[in-house]
């Protein structure tokens, strides 16, 4: 697995965390929720191919 991908997800997580904190301090709870959901969906979208590869590897290993 590429290491830079992990750093990318970590950096994205940090940015979402800072945005969430900023919206919370501004009393914009609605936007804080939107940012956290969008962040989660985006990270899921860019990790889904790796998750698919992982399941494929598991299926091959156990000959399912």
């Amino acid at each position: 697995m590429q290491v830079d991908f992990i750093f990318k997800v970590a950096g994205f997580g940090m940015i979402v965390a800072v945005l969430y904190w900023m919206f919370k301090t501004q009393n914009r709870d609605d936007l804080a929720t939107v940012v956290s959901v969008v962040g989660m969906v985006t990270v899921l979208y860019i990790t889904i191919q790796y998750i698919a590869k992982f399941f494929e590897a598991v299926r091959t290993m156990f000959q399912l």
């Binding site: 990318k8 950096g11 940015i15 900023m22 914009r28 985006t42």
Partner: peptide, 23 residues
């Protein structure tokens, strides 16, 4: 009061996030 700080942060961090995704 409601939007100025929000847009300053959102622009800078949104740009960084988009850059990270496209990287």
């Amino acid at each position: 009061d409601r939007n100025e700080t929000v847009w300053r942060y959102l622009g800078a961090l949104g740009g960084l996030a988009l850059g990270l995704i496209l990287l």
